[in-house]
Nucleic acid binder design. Structure first.
Lengths: 130, 130
DNA sequence: TTATAAATGTTATATTATTACACAGCGTTA
DNA sequence: TAACGCTGTGTAATAATATAACATTTATAA
């Protein structure tokens, strides 16, 4: 069993918001939305986001500077993310593919580097946009 | 045979600079370096970078907002990049791993999405920083 | 209880990237 | 040749993303 992190007020507010969206949210759009809850400054948002990323509740879509909730109930995959991104409608989906994950997890380069994390983003056109 | 792109003056200046560095460069550090060559504004840099990325001469390290030259002589892999990034010294290396590339290229999700590109970033500690 | 770490609130600022506009060069084609 | 589309240039202004620095508070551990 995994230790259940206790979230603080700001962290909860921001996680709630991100979890309600099935698409990634940007930091300043989050800020706009939580102003009514008393969160006034970018740094308050970024601090909460950092923490939520660290504990695996959300992921950052690096190519989009946006944050999406992790739907995986185990919340153990903060260090191993795979996304598909439609370049037309910008729809983002997290991919859970056992075989591919295994492959990436087991990857060893010839430089003797020790990996603890990876992020993979696939780009293309979704069914609607083809 | 691949059509040989002819680069413009700005594109050449900026590609030269990036190729001389074995590590990624950031747009504003590039701007600083090319001011003596008459490139004065961020937009001039970003425009050249966009083009160079598009034709596969350089890649963007998304998690670092930085650009690195593609050492692959074929310059055909603009759409398929794998990097290893040391989180301590920030050393970045492009990875050419046939088997892994094949795996990624052949990946099909179950959403019917049509992929034309992917970007994979591995994070960890390099030999020096372990 | 002390002290240590983690989070907060605020202001200011740094960094990264784009919009908008005027114009130049080049190949096509009518 | 002229008219057109396309790509690139130069410049100014501004938008969008992210962090530094500081004072204070809360939670956790020793």
């Amino acid at each position: 069993m995994q230790k259940q992190e206790t979230l603080t007020k700001n962290q909860k507010i921001i996680l709630d918001l991100i979890e309600k969206s099935d698409q990634p949210l940007k930091a300043y759009s989050i800020l706009f939305d939580v102003k009514k809850k008393g969160i006034n400054a970018p740094l308050q948002v970024y601090r909460a986001l950092d923490k939520l990323v660290k504990i695996g509740k959300i992921h950052k879509i690096e190519s989009r500077n946006a944050f999406i909730a992790c739907k995986n109930s185990k919340c153990q995959i903060a260090n191993a993310t795979i996304f598909s991104i439609c370049e037309s409608c910008e729809d983002v989906t997290e991919i859970h593919d056992h075989k591919l994950s295994e492959h990436l997890r087991d990857f060893k380069d010839n430089k003797g580097m020790k990996y603890n994390k990876y992020n993979l983003e696939f780009f293309g056109l979704c069914k609607k946009c083809v």
